[in-house]
Design a protein around this nucleic acid. Structure first.
Lengths: 212, 212
DNA sequence: CCTGTTCCATACAGACTGTATGTTAGAAGA
DNA sequence: TCTTCTAACATACAGTCTGTATGGAACAGG
């Protein structure tokens, strides 16, 4: 079951090394894709930043789009983790009713989306680079599940009226995404954040069962 | 003031011919961009479909992205015209209150967005190809104005509560865009249309001043 | 010690974009 | 009418980028 110490250590070192180069590639690609976009970033730029050669890139990834998929997956993963973290923290501290909890959740979701990497890579480049089916699969895997189950719970608890979860999830995510992009590109982020939050609040009241 | 007949006719023929080649390029590019996307479509493919050479393309347009801008402008223009048409028709036939008129307007907006060219070129490829500022300028010019002034009117008339127009317009447009994409990619378009419409209705009720 | 595999570097071929140059048809003036 | 000039293309070329094929070095296993 256990290999000799030296062998295992060596194995680990080797495996760790290859994992390192892979991480370096993803990290470099993430920075460059977020800065200049997908097509404006050459594979040569990426491997230069990662301090490897193109051979390493095409050893670890099928092609450039495959590398992008890994990068976008990482972005989505980071976002999902951040959201879970925030949500648990909120669930502990606040103890309002389910409805206000949900509303506050959306507001902090909006704040979390205010991240340049996420916006550029996941929201802007993603759909065009991967095509809608692959993009959707990635988002389904990482991001939507959270939102969807939270909405399902809200419906079960009766805080919002029964509605088809699928389109509701997609449309709310798009709503918040667009709001975050609006805030990011506004000259005055402060007021933009306030206004977008207000509009979001108003729209969400339409979902409430009580109507308030 | 008026040039000689022969000269003018000749001029017109010539001008018309050059306009023809330009239109042919835009038309061919529009079809191919909508089918295969921007990067997957080579300039050679475009000029072959338009039955000209690459020289003509680079005579009329600065580069490939410039051609795309023209294509997307045409798509947005078509959409805007369709919306105006529908709206005037609805204003004549129906004569409900401003609130129901607005709601119906959004539903038909949703139906109008169900167009493959529009979805792929304007909603998916546009932001990635042109970058967000140029994309926003185009949409601002063609599409948002309509929606924005209709919303402003609704606020003036008191059918929806006062709200910042800027983010409201963007977010509602994004909402409808996402809904149209959701419908387009669903297996069962019928039920998807119904469900998305229902969610849209619920969200819109949040805007209503009366809350109904 | 020998062999096979993993991991990566280098070299190469194909495609694509943009530009520079050539060419033709029509407009304009004398 | 003749010349000239310019718009509207066509063609040829150069640079860049992606993906692949080849080669080698390190390491694990027998």
């Amino acid at each position: 079951m256990t290999a000799p110490r030296s062998t295992r250590s060596s194995r680990n070192r080797r495996a760790e090394h290859t994992a390192d180069t892979r991480r370096a590639l993803v990290r470099a690609a993430r920075t460059l894709f977020a800065e200049r976009g997908y097509t404006a970033t050459g594979t040569e730029d990426i491997v230069a930043a990662a301090q490897v050669t193109r051979g390493a890139l095409y050893h670890h990834f099928k092609d450039k789009a495959d590398l992008f998929r890994a990068v976008m997956g990482e972005c989505a993963q980071d976002m999902a983790e951040r959201l879970v973290e925030q949500e648990t923290a909120r669930a502990e501290s606040e103890s309002g009713d389910a409805w206000t909890l949900l509303r506050h959740g959306f507001q902090s979701f909006l704040d979390a989306c205010n991240d340049p990497d996420f916006q550029r890579i996941v929201l802007v480049e993603g759909p065009a680079v991967l095509g809608h089916s692959a993009w959707d699969a990635l988002v389904e895997e990482h991001g939507y599940v959270l939102l969807a189950e939270e909405l399902a719970r809200a419906i079960d608890e009766g805080s919002i009226s029964p509605m088809p979860i699928g389109p509701l999830t997609r449309m709310l995510a798009a709503l918040i995404s667009e709001a975050s992009l609006y805030i990011a590109r506004a000259e005055d982020h402060e007021t933009a954040r306030k206004e977008a939050g207000e509009v979001l609040e108003r729209l969400l009241t339409g979902l409430s069962r009580t109507g308030a």
